[in-house]
Amino acid sequence: MNSSRLLLVPLLLLFLLSGSAAWCTPEEDAKRLDEELYVLDIARTLNLTQAQCQALIPVVEEIQTAFKARDAGIEDIWKQTKDAIEAVNKAWETRTAPDPTAKATADQAEGLHRSIIEATRQAVDRAAEKARAVLTAEQRALIETPQQAELRRSNQAMYQGANSLAEYLARDIAALRQLREEEYEAARVALAMNLATRVTTIQDPGFRVALNQALDLEDTWRRMPDAEFNRREDGLPELLAQFLQTPEDPQVLQAPVTLDEFLRFLTSPYTAELLKSYQPSSGGAPATPQGGGGQ
């Protein structure tokens, strides 16, 4: 081997170590940029201070450590049970009963796999709690809590994807505008009845008042010119919430950062590196720090 070839090996190693980005495809680079932008956008939305960024770094690194442990654990189980699992799958493919010992091993592997995934989920939840503790009360209010997320999901399940009953009914009020006049005359009473029965019972003396208010509301929004409707449509759920006497806490349904978005921010593989060099725009965190370090 001549000297020029000998020199090539360390040069190649140096290249590999120093410039891994050079080996990324343009698609991978673009995906990374997109993800980094996502992370930075959440950091900006939360108005993180430099000190908070520093305090968050070990928390997000803890998550990456949990992910590595998860991957290593899963890999270990695979090494030990690969033959059994593949034998079971192969048997089932041909509609034959698998060997009972292999089946027992595969079942055990599935149980272990589930436990590892659950343990990782719990580790992420714990880290998210630590991360919240780093933030001020005002910053925390920008993020959906697990309870708020649960409420939102249960509302969405109940109201076909709408965040609340009011938002769901607002879609109907908007749809009333599309009906022909004779259809509207019939549907308006039914919808008003639906609204009124959510406020009081038919037997209640106040029912007629509620019904008339609902009819007025429908007529107003039906007759509204398109330009005005487009301008005011976003406020309709709130108006309906007032009518239904269930004004929602705006933070419950409109937290700028959903729980899923916050978890994506914390679990992204790029977050720790970005937080190390992130420069908050100005002013730093709002309000008084509460709980946790890094303030």
Partner: peptide, 25 residues
């Protein structure tokens, strides 16, 4: 299911109200 990411179907809403109007009528 509700969590399948289809945007709200305005046409379906109108259709539903048309059916409601037909039942009322």
């Amino acid at each position: 299911p509700w969590d399948y990411p289809l945007p709200p179907d305005d046409e379906a809403n109108v259709e539903r109200l048309e059916q409601l109007a037909a039942r009322i009528t």
